[in-house]
């Protein structure tokens, strides 16, 4: 039973980001299932407001959907802080297994408690550190780097713990701050480093993979509850269909972005397995400090899920 619906979906990304491919697939799937009755209108580049604002609009039933990354929402669902923890996931496959599995469901329940339905987890990509000073291949190399991070306590602590001078800054100011050397470094996924042209003003990129904060496809529970069971099922299923497409395009683009970054003349540094392990151990203080706010059960659960997926992969 489908009614004519216009789903307003906002996000802060540009319309050429892989999320757009995901939204397109999402929309096509919905259109097919509803016989053309359900349609998504997407608003790009924050034209309908920032992500937090949109999430609040979802909760009051003013707007249907938004695709934010998990980090800005820790003020609403503290458990999401788990994705900000440094060096949590080791690979994309592992992240997929945990997010699409039982742990993802567990987080979805937390969202329902605050009036939001999380339809799916999409990919933002592993975050990497780039800078204009020197190659970063070990923990000590971060010492004294002036790095821009998201306004998020776990990120700030992670980098301050490494001895870097971490300061939050609006995304739109990063490029000129790097260009004028007001800051030395920033951390973002390869795709962002490429599409925002940070390679023009940076010399080194390190494959730190220090965080994997997923995109969430959020829907207003107030509005969702008014939909028929068929409509609800179609939304859930199509968000997954869109997610499959989005992850595919994102991963493909990530590889191409890395190549483009290299082609632009940046030195790309890998971290040795031992160094990665060392960093993970040194970052333990950040885990200890933030576990109480995130919830001890949440951290334990995610580590259990990761262990299980590691076993399964063997």
């Amino acid at each position: 039973d489908f009614k004519t619906r216009n789903i307003r979906l906002s996000n802060g990304l540009a319309p050429d980001h892989p999320v757009a491919d995901g939204v397109k697939a999402f929309n096509a799937c919905l259109s097919e299932k509803s016989g053309g009755k359900t349609k998504i209108t997407a608003y790009w580049s924050g034209s309908l407001g920032d992500d937090i604002q949109a999430v609040q609009a979802l909760r009051s039933g003013v707007q249907e959907a938004v695709i934010p990354s998990s980090s800005p929402l820790v003020g609403l669902v503290p458990a999401l802080g788990v994705f900000d923890l440094p060096f949590l996931f080791e690979s994309e496959a592992q992240a997929d297994a945990v997010l699409d599995g039982e742990f993802g469901e567990f987080i979805n329940k937390k969202f329902e408690e605050v009036g939001i339905i999380n339809l799916a987890y999409w990919e933002n990509g592993f975050r990497q550190v780039s800078n204009s000073k020197h190659p970063v291949t070990k923990w000590e190399d971060m010492e004294g780097l002036k790095i821009r991070v998201m306004q998020n306590n776990i990120f700030l602590d992670t980098f301050q713990n490494m001895g870097a001078n971490a300061s939050p800054m609006a995304f739109s100011e990063i490029f000129s701050a790097l260009e004028t050397k007001a800051i030395d470094a920033q951390e973002n996924p390869y795709v962002t480093i490429d599409t925002s042209k940070f390679y023009e003003v940076q010399k080194y990129v390190s494959a730190t993979n220090h965080a994997y904060t997923p995109f969430l496809v959020l829907f207003s529970k107030r509005i969702f509850d008014r939909y028929s069971p068929e409509e609800q099922a179609a939304l859930r299923e199509c968000a997954q269909v869109g997610g499959a497409k989005q992850r595919e395009v994102q991963r493909d683009l990530s590889v191409r972005s890395l190549a483009a970054i290299k082609a632009a003349g940046l030195e790309v540094n890998e971290l040795s397995t031992e160094e990665k392990q060392r960093m993970r151990e040194k970052a333990q203080v950040v885990y200890d400090k933030h576990t109480p706010t995130i919830g001890a059960d949440v951290v334990a659960r995610v580590q259990e899920s990761i262990r299980a997926s590691r076993e399964a992969a063997k």
Binding site: I52, S60, G75, L76, N152
Partner: peptide
Amino acid sequence: WEQHDINATMFAPV
């Protein structure tokens, strides 16, 4: 007023 509950359960990041 109507939005009070929604705002009361959202916390500033820092």
